[in-house]
Computed example of a mutant assay.
Amino acid sequence: MKVSNSNNRFCAFLRGVNVKGTNMKMAEVCSVFAEAGMKDVSSVLASGNILFSSEKKVEELKKTLEETMSAHFSYEAFLFVKSQREIETIFRENPFEINPGYHIYGFVGVDGIEKILMSEFEKSRKASGEAAQIISGNFYWTVPKGNTLGSEFGNILGRKNLKNSFTSRNLNTFEKVLKKI
């Protein structure tokens, strides 16, 4: 078996997996990725973080995998492909201090989504300690535990008009992805 180098290792972050009736077993998702030509496929957690290797370009990977996932699972799939280096940057450049009372989220999405998210965040009412920053083109949000879905910004994130533009993961998920990639 060929050992992959970090230049062709990726993680696909799927949006909307195992929420609101879209239930998928990660083993089946990994099989779909393998059938689509991806190598060294594995998953991290049940929230749709699929690690794989490929020589193809990110744009081609995104298109191929969204089409394959949509056809196999009969739903409109949205996913965002990040290279190992991009994931390392997201994790390393987190601007917020780790605090056991807060969640820290990193966002992956289409080009320019960080500016749209920041604009929406700035217009929203904030919980005490809730904050957001853009670092190196990546949007980060910290929110007190228990307020993620209850915050005004958290509700904005669920808007249908944004669903194909981004997905978010807790910083702990990025760390787990990096340990396994």
Rank of each mutant, 00 (worst) to 15 (best):
Q84G: 01
W141V: 08
T68Q: 12
E120R: 10
I87G: 03
S119D: 15
G112K: 06
M69R: 01
L65V: 01
G101K: 13
P100F: 07
I113W: 04
S83R: 03
S136M: 12
E120I: 00
S74Y: 04
M118I: 09
F78L: 04
I104E: 04
V108Y: 02
K82N: 14
L117K: 01
R85V: 09
A127M: 13
E66A: 09
S128N: 13
I87N: 07
S74D: 14
G129N: 10
Y140V: 06
G146K: 07
S119R: 15
P95F: 01
I113N: 04
E86D: 14
F139E: 11
E67F: 03
F107W: 07
F91Y: 15
Y102S: 10
I90E: 03
G101V: 00
S70K: 04
R92H: 09
T64W: 00
N94S: 11
E93L: 11
T142F: 02
P100Y: 06
E97F: 08
E66S: 11
E120P: 01
E122C: 13
P144R: 04
F107M: 12
E67H: 12
G101Q: 15
F139N: 06
E88G: 08
F121G: 01
F78E: 01
S119H: 11
G109F: 05
I104H: 07
E66R: 02
G106Y: 02
S83H: 04
K126H: 13
F73Y: 08
A127T: 11
F121E: 03
H103S: 13
E67A: 15
I104C: 10
V81L: 04
H103V: 07
I113L: 04
R92A: 11
E67T: 12
